[in-house]
Amino acid sequence: MRGGVAQGFSIEEISIAFGSVYESASEVLAGLNEIKISQFCKTHGINGHYICASDEFASDLCLRAISGLSSASVAGAECLVVATHTPDFLAPATSNLVHRALGLDERVVCFDLQLFCSGFVKALFMANLLLDKFKSVLLCCVSTKSKSLDPDNLAQKASISDSASALIIRRKECEIKPSFSELSLSELACVETAPFGGYNKMVANDYVSLDNSSFFNEVFDKFPPFFKDFTGSLGAYFSDDTPCFFHLPSEFFASRLKGTLGLSDNQCVSLSLKKYANTDINNIPLNLALYVKNHASIKPKSTALLASYGTGISLNSLFCEIEFSKIKASILAEK
């Protein structure tokens, strides 16, 4: 299996923020009868979601998430990376808008990454690579996907939350070097997600249009062997005690994935859906934050496996050391 190995890093802080508008699933699905609403909530494992107000955008959520980090860590970051597929504008870059609002030093390097559901794992690994040149990176992942959904597709609308994560990543010597691998199934690039946005108006849709059946079938066909190969390459480093953080868009998906991979409920960390719905690119960082906050007796040092899949279709996995007990985690929500 081809992949990448890089120097060690530490996640020092994680902060999660959400759109300012909370809606219960019953409110969003008000046109359906109670039985269908109950079935939807059970299948997706959610009670409600957070979406942005009409005047709230990606840079706003980034700034809200960053407000949960220590001011000294933010001011000391030498590089600012924003990963999103829902920027405020095509130009200027969202990272420059955030940099301006924060009043960061002019020498801070800023850039955006166009990434989707599978973006956090890739962005984290790329931030790790940047630590070869910088002492610390401020990484933000943000999705305001609700703004790009068909308002008539109530099921899709009800299942998604707008969110942002902000992390402080620092260079660190680790006994076990981070290992990353990705599988790009680009033959489905315009099938699983129909073209949307950009300059090619001849084929682009007005709203995000997903072929969920195509995505589901391809992921469950290709991800299990990819996961087996990746974990096999780790040898004894990966065990039944290794916590796994997956991009889990629904309870049905989570249950099917755990069964297919043969993972226990304890090993597969899924803490966010009921309260926060599908947070898209932020499912994994949100579960990392919840794991830190909900586990009082976390081992001082541990390894973890992070894995995701999304538009592209891209599958990826990252195995790394994480000192959970030293992470400062904040979750900023209205409800």
Rank of each mutant, 00 (worst) to 15 (best):
residue 159 S to V: 14
residue 169 I to D: 01
residue 208 V to R: 05
residue 156 Q to F: 06
residue 138 L to A: 02
residue 119 G to A: 07
residue 217 N to A: 12
residue 196 F to L: 12
residue 142 V to Y: 01
residue 143 S to R: 04
residue 122 K to H: 12
residue 212 N to S: 12
residue 176 I to P: 05
residue 171 R to Y: 08
residue 128 N to Q: 13
residue 140 C to K: 00
residue 191 V to M: 05
residue 213 S to P: 01
residue 160 I to Y: 04
residue 205 N to K: 14
residue 182 E to Y: 11
residue 149 L to N: 06
residue 228 K to F: 11
residue 123 A to V: 02
residue 162 D to R: 00
residue 183 L to E: 10
residue 217 N to C: 12
residue 137 V to M: 02
residue 123 A to P: 01
residue 132 D to V: 06
residue 169 I to Y: 01
residue 189 A to E: 10
residue 204 A to Y: 08
residue 120 F to T: 00
residue 221 D to C: 10
residue 242 T to C: 07
residue 147 K to H: 11
residue 150 D to N: 14
residue 230 F to H: 03
residue 227 F to G: 02
residue 125 F to S: 01
residue 157 K to L: 15
residue 214 S to H: 05
residue 150 D to S: 07
residue 221 D to W: 06
residue 238 F to Y: 15
residue 124 L to P: 01
residue 213 S to T: 15
residue 126 M to K: 05
residue 143 S to N: 14
residue 116 F to Y: 14
residue 192 E to N: 08
residue 127 A to S: 12
residue 132 D to C: 09
residue 211 D to N: 14
residue 138 L to P: 04
residue 139 L to P: 03
residue 217 N to Q: 13
residue 190 C to N: 15
residue 122 K to L: 11
residue 221 D to N: 12
residue 193 T to M: 14
residue 147 K to I: 05
residue 238 F to L: 09
residue 120 F to D: 00
residue 166 A to Y: 00
residue 130 L to D: 03
residue 235 G to H: 07
residue 233 S to C: 08
residue 161 S to P: 04
residue 188 L to S: 08
residue 184 S to F: 13
residue 144 T to H: 04
residue 159 S to T: 09
residue 197 G to S: 10
residue 171 R to D: 13
residue 233 S to G: 14
residue 119 G to M: 02
residue 228 K to T: 15
residue 168 I to N: 00
residue 171 R to G: 06
residue 162 D to A: 02
residue 206 D to F: 06
residue 121 V to N: 02
residue 147 K to Q: 12
residue 177 K to F: 11
residue 221 D to A: 13
residue 156 Q to M: 14
residue 162 D to V: 03
residue 205 N to E: 14
residue 137 V to A: 03
residue 194 A to Q: 13
residue 182 E to N: 09
residue 167 L to C: 02
residue 233 S to K: 07
residue 190 C to F: 13
residue 153 N to L: 08
